[in-house]
Amino acid sequence: MGVETKIEPTTIPRMPRGVRLKHDETRDEWLLLAPERVVKPNPSAIEILKRCDGKANVSEIVQALAEQFSADPALIERDVRALLNELAAKRMLDL
């Protein structure tokens, strides 16, 4: 079993039950809560994770972020794929 799950443009990343992105009022920051884990995602990861709503697919997420930040979709896609792979390996996202 490999770490790299094949990510297609139509893949819909989903946060499984037991994993949530939460804005923590005490610390005024976004945190990813998972089993026995509290992770502080970096700013671009936060924007990507906010869009992992279980409905949008990878190409829609990339497109939306490219528009939001007026950025090159190819660069955004690279970041999105890297994050999805990393979190899928940690079982914090299902692909």
């Binding site: 079993m1 490999g2 770490v3 799950t5 026995e36 899928a88 390996a89 079982r91």
Partner: peptide
């Protein structure tokens, strides 16, 4: 390594 992506081992 064998189970990466299947189960997280702590």
């Amino acid at each position: 390594k064998h189970y990466a992506g299947t189960i997280v081992i702590d």
